[in-house]
Design a protein around this nucleic acid. Sequence first.
DNA 1: CGGTTTTAGTTAAGGACGTTAATTTACGCC
DNA 2: GGCGTAAATTAACGTCCTTAACTAAAACCG
Lengths: 411, 411
Amino acid sequence: MEAKKTTVRDIRRRNRSILLSRLFFEGPLSRLELSGMTGLSAATASNVTAELIDERLVVEAGQVESDGGRPRVLLRVDPDYGYVVGVELAETGIRAELFDLSMTRRATVEEPMPPAPFDPGAVADHIAKALAAIVPAAGVAPAKVLAAGIGVPGTVDHESSAVVHAPTVGWDAVRLEQLLRDRGVELPLYVENGAKTQGQAEMWFGSGRGARHAVIVLVGSGVGAALVNNGAILRGISSSAGEWGHTTCVYGGRPCRCGARGCLEAYVGADAILDRFAELGTGLTLDGDADARIRAIVAAAADDPAVAAFVDEVAGMLGDGIANLVNLLNPERVVLGGFTGLALGERLLPRIRAAAQAGALPHPFGQATIELAKLGPDAIAFGAATLPVADLLARGADPRESAAAFTYVDA
Amino acid sequence: MEAKKTTVRDIRRRNRSILLSRLFFEGPLSRLELSGMTGLSAATASNVTAELIDERLVVEAGQVESDGGRPRVLLRVDPDYGYVVGVELAETGIRAELFDLSMTRRATVEEPMPPAPFDPGAVADHIAKALAAIVPAAGVAPAKVLAAGIGVPGTVDHESSAVVHAPTVGWDAVRLEQLLRDRGVELPLYVENGAKTQGQAEMWFGSGRGARHAVIVLVGSGVGAALVNNGAILRGISSSAGEWGHTTCVYGGRPCRCGARGCLEAYVGADAILDRFAELGTGLTLDGDADARIRAIVAAAADDPAVAAFVDEVAGMLGDGIANLVNLLNPERVVLGGFTGLALGERLLPRIRAAAQAGALPHPFGQATIELAKLGPDAIAFGAATLPVADLLARGADPRESAAAFTYVDA
DNA sequence: CGGTTTTAGTTAAGGACGTTAATTTACGCC
DNA sequence: GGCGTAAATTAACGTCCTTAACTAAAACCG
């Protein structure tokens, strides 16, 4: 309704984007296949791909032997056109990963940090250090690094530059992008909520693949979600959409670290599960990190009826929470991820499904499948790395040429 | 990502749509103003408007006197280019309204019906009758009626034709569009969930105006919502997104007519309020329809502490439900409507706001304003009538020329 | 082994559009 | 009645897609 004008130039941009996206997700493909699947004439497909090849974004990738007739030459996005970095800011430290344009991991760098609350300056130092270290670690030319994405444990306002709000690590309006610029980082940066980056990873290469309407539910220490409508992750007015963990599921219930009562996170988040389990007084002792301890609890349910009842209740609440999302958003797929989500889901998926069915309306429930995440709990950095790639595909051009660093991409 | 090719023709279509939308929402405007606000060159603005004038969609609407220089001639969408009908299918009957293209109501026809459950054929008879009656009632030429929108109390699948699922009136997969065609209705039809049509009405001409991310909350007998992201109402995979009423707010709580427990509707829906009020045993007797009785309860809270506590709890739960939507969707505006919502909101908006604040995260809550609906509880038919207009504006062409009747419009 | 067939890809001509830069139109004002 | 000013139209031009003709590269076949 407030759309901006369209001009002849836009159509070339869009068609570049369409062809490039096809090659990225479905390549290698021949020119004629591209023409067929997009509806573009063969002439234009040739013409546009010639441009892309000229710019080295696309390369030929062998031929397909023919059964009479000229063989098709296959095209694909050149994996070595450039590289993208994905950074995860977790509660225990930084992890940076470098990928080529086929999203193959080329290097990983970890920077442990003392536990939260975090000093913003110190975090920026660590990120800058990781970004500096990963390029030599991967052995690629610094000039070929296109951009970096950063997944953070909080919400991100994209004003003139990225501003992070992350109460769980003690951040309120931290100008992360600016802090990195002050430390000499010159790469285009894409800062986004970690649940959203992980959600995008699942949408592109995990269990969400192919769905237009999906919900990626992430249950770890915190509880979040990436809500996907028509292929695009919902952001809302200040990019904080998807804050599912602090949705009330028990009116007036358990107090939550957010200050409110009865939040979903106060029942199904890892910390909540561990706390409530301790209150049960089963005599069971737990070792290891949160992930291991959650798994131990789930395993113990096999022998101990009290534990079984407890775990069953947790699964029931999670399923009920999922039911709410199914009712509200009518997704075709629900993907359950995060270390707690996977620990519960691997053994209790039928129970979770049943609870979701009990709480959801029959019609939307019937449209949705509920599956486990494919990429494991560590896809935040990977998802962050996809952000500049999404921008590249959407605009059909190198992110380094972008006017604004972060553009809202409607994958 | 799966986008279809763009061709030179599309750019004209889009620019037509942009100019037409501007004229509809912000007209009358001169050609030069149009050019300025859209970024289109004056030449193109002239050129495209000439086309629109040629097709009689747009007419001149007087001049603006100049302070030296040729005066601007103002353009606007011709209100009498054609007419649209909006139909509300309510639990008490049919209401049809006919509007011109300035959305001025020209006629209303009501068809009472015996209470639900409804016989689909009988409803189709009534709608067909109302559609036939309203054109003469408005005194307009039948050939100038462009299309009709129908708001129904349930969800709508748009497959080859509209299929309605409405458990509250006993409908499961009713092929409403086909039933109407069987009865000789030839108008293009746009069938949509009533909460969504009312939501669109509020977005276009009510309290939602100007917001890109909004939640229109509708509390009547049932409880629903229209979720607006980036100007578009969320539909999900089968158009049932927005089913807010059957979201769990009390895990294991009151049984709901949907079969689940603890649904929001089982606490804040009109029927639930009346039932629970009766259980209170205040001795107060209530008269009139549901609306009047809810209002009487709210009014009685001023004198009776027990009633006050009850009403306060209802407002608290409503506010908490709103908080969940604020967290999940990060809207810039929340609009509270529906007869129950308005009855509560008119007196208890501060309480509802406070409850929402208590349940929501500070950051998204701070971005959202919570307001009452402007159009009253009867905007379903009006909103239904906007559906074909939205289509007209989006495609920049007469809906009668559309290939598929219902197209998903991204206002 | 050279012509034929088949499929892939490229050129060339043509049309739809938006843009810029004149040019014309329609007023108010001496 | 000419002048100044702003609105609107026209003309020339460039971009980009399309159709249709054409070239390229292989298998098939006598």
